[in-house]
Computed example of a mutant assay.
Amino acid sequence: MNVVMSEQLSSVVRPWDLVAEGYAETGATVLAPFAAHALEYVTISSESEIVDVAAGTGLLSIAAAELGARVQAIDLSQSMIDQLVAAAAEHPTITAQVGDGQALPYEDNRFDAGFSLFGLMFFPDRPEGFAELCRVLRPGATAVVAAWAPAAESSLMRALFGALTAADPTATLPQPDARSLENPRVFDAEMRAAGFLDVRIEQHTVEVCYPDATALWESTTRSSAPLAVVRDEVGEEEWQRRSTAAIEHLTVTYRPNTPLRTTALFGIGTAPS
Rank of each mutant, 00 (worst) to 15 (best):
S6D: 00
E7G: 11
S10N: 12
Y23H: 06
Y23S: 04
A24W: 02
A28V: 12
T29H: 07
A36D: 02
A38K: 12
A38L: 06
V42Q: 05
T43R: 15
S45G: 13
S46L: 15
S48E: 01
S48T: 15
E49C: 14
E49D: 07
I50P: 00
V51M: 04
D52A: 12
D52R: 07
V53R: 02
A55I: 14
T57F: 04
T57W: 00
T57K: 07
G58Y: 11
A63Q: 09
A63P: 09
A64N: 06
A65H: 03
E66G: 14
L67G: 01
A69H: 11
A69E: 08
R70Y: 03
Q78V: 15
S79V: 06
I81Y: 07
I81P: 09
D82L: 15
D82I: 15
A86R: 11
A88D: 00
A88K: 05
A89Q: 09
I94L: 07
G101F: 02
L104Q: 00
P105N: 08
D108T: 13
N109Q: 08
D112I: 09
F115V: 08
F115A: 05
S116I: 15
L120N: 01
M121C: 07
F123G: 02
P127D: 00
F130C: 05
A131G: 11
L133S: 04
L133D: 02
L133E: 07
L133F: 07
L137I: 08
R138S: 10
G140T: 04
A143C: 10
V145S: 10
V145R: 11
W148Q: 04
W148R: 11
P150V: 13
A151T: 14
E153Q: 08
R158C: 07
A159C: 09
L164C: 03
P169G: 08
P169K: 06
T172W: 09
Q175S: 14
F187D: 05
E190T: 00
E190M: 10
A193I: 14
A193W: 09
L197Q: 11
V199P: 05
I201V: 15
I201R: 01
I201A: 00
T205F: 01
T205M: 13
V206P: 01
E207W: 09
C209H: 04
Y210G: 00
Y210Q: 10
D212N: 13
D212K: 06
E218T: 15
T221D: 10
L227K: 04
V229G: 03
E233Y: 01
W239N: 08
R241W: 14
R241D: 11
T244H: 10
I247W: 01
L260P: 06
R261L: 15
T262C: 14
F266E: 12
G267I: 06
G267L: 03
I268A: 00
I268Q: 05
T270F: 14
A271R: 01
